[in-house]
Simulated scan of single mutants.
Amino acid sequence: MPSAKPLAEQLEMVHAYVRSVESRFNAHVKATTEENSARDRRVSDLVAAQEARFDKLNERLAEQERQSARVDAGGIPIITAGVVLSGIPEWLAALPWHSGWLLPAAALLATGVVLGSLRRKSR
């Protein structure tokens, strides 16, 4: 039968093995922590980039809405003129030399001038 190693030597071998396992464990914990930190930084960078893209998109949408409102507002005078002109009584429109159109046209012109001046002041 082979001789058994002394107890002190066996304990030293076990202790060395435990230190080796603990060292490898600590190395793995450190590597994992570094990987997690790097991943967190990448996620933060991606979130910041996405937020910047969303901000640009929101700005573009707001600009498109402003342009759409300007285009829509540009048609209002034409629609108004059509409504006013269609509402002129026949007797007024039948006056000679189209003089019956002068009063509504002058009123539309005056309205346009007033609205134009108000629009310039609001900018």
Score class of each variant (00 low, 15 high):
residue 103 L to C: 10
residue 77 P to G: 03
residue 97 W to P: 01
residue 80 T to A: 13
residue 120 R to Y: 09
residue 45 D to Q: 09
residue 115 L to K: 01
residue 114 V to F: 06
residue 30 K to F: 07
residue 29 V to L: 12
residue 55 D to H: 14
residue 19 R to H: 12
residue 113 V to C: 04
residue 69 A to M: 05
residue 11 L to K: 09
residue 112 G to N: 10
residue 27 A to E: 11
residue 60 R to Q: 12
residue 24 R to G: 04
residue 20 S to D: 13
residue 63 E to N: 11
residue 43 V to Q: 07
residue 30 K to E: 08
residue 119 R to H: 11
residue 52 A to D: 13
residue 39 R to Q: 10
residue 87 G to Q: 06
residue 100 G to F: 02
residue 81 A to D: 02
residue 43 V to I: 14
residue 52 A to K: 09
residue 36 N to L: 15
residue 62 A to G: 11
residue 46 L to K: 11
residue 75 G to Y: 04
residue 62 A to N: 11
residue 15 H to R: 15
residue 13 M to S: 08
residue 49 A to H: 11
residue 101 W to H: 03
residue 97 W to M: 01
residue 5 K to M: 13
residue 31 A to C: 05
residue 35 E to P: 02
residue 68 S to N: 10
residue 71 V to H: 04
residue 69 A to I: 04
residue 12 E to K: 08
residue 39 R to H: 09
residue 89 P to G: 11
residue 91 W to V: 03
residue 61 L to P: 01
residue 22 E to K: 15
residue 114 V to M: 04
residue 94 A to S: 15
residue 95 L to I: 00
residue 99 S to F: 07
residue 5 K to V: 12
residue 28 H to G: 12
residue 21 V to N: 08
residue 2 P to L: 11
residue 96 P to N: 08
residue 69 A to S: 10
residue 79 I to V: 09
residue 38 A to S: 08
residue 32 T to E: 10
residue 75 G to K: 05
residue 22 E to F: 10
residue 9 E to S: 09
residue 3 S to F: 07
residue 91 W to Q: 04
residue 2 P to I: 05
residue 30 K to R: 15
residue 105 A to H: 02
residue 111 T to E: 01
residue 120 R to N: 10
residue 1 M to G: 10
residue 23 S to I: 04
residue 49 A to Q: 11
residue 97 W to Q: 05
residue 116 G to A: 03
residue 26 N to P: 00
residue 34 E to R: 12
